[in-house]
Simulated scan of single mutants.
Amino acid sequence: MLKFLITLQVTALAVIASMDDRIVKHRRGERGSVTIEQVIWAGAVILIFGIVVAAITAYVTSEAGKIQ
């Protein structure tokens, strides 16, 4: 389970870095760039939070099933 979470985190960080690099390379004007960057970071945080919540929920559900 821990390996899975670490893999998800590394993948998410790689995607964020790739998106950030693309935005920086293709920026023609600086107008609105801060807003776009903030939206991307907010989306990434929400995605990571959702993954963590789903992983914790799955773990708790599987452990609760073991209770007799």
Rank of each mutant, 00 (worst) to 15 (best):
K3A: 06
F4W: 03
F4K: 10
L5E: 04
T7M: 06
L8Q: 13
Q9R: 10
Q9M: 03
V10D: 01
T11F: 11
T11D: 05
T11P: 04
L13P: 01
A14T: 11
A14S: 14
A14H: 13
I16L: 09
M19I: 05
D21L: 13
D21C: 08
R22E: 01
I23P: 02
K25N: 04
H26Q: 07
H26L: 09
G29I: 09
G29E: 12
G29W: 13
E30W: 07
R31S: 03
S33L: 09
S33H: 11
V34H: 14
T35P: 00
T35K: 15
I36Y: 07
I36C: 04
I36W: 08
I36V: 14
Q38R: 15
Q38P: 00
I40M: 15
I40K: 15
W41K: 15
G43H: 10
G43R: 11
G43C: 12
A44N: 09
V45G: 04
I46T: 04
I46Q: 13
L47N: 04
L47P: 00
I48C: 10
G50M: 14
G50D: 06
G50V: 01
V53S: 08
A55H: 04
A55N: 03
I56N: 03
I56E: 02
A58V: 09
A58S: 12
A58N: 12
V60D: 01
T61E: 09
S62R: 14
E63K: 15
A64Q: 06
Q68F: 03
Q68I: 00
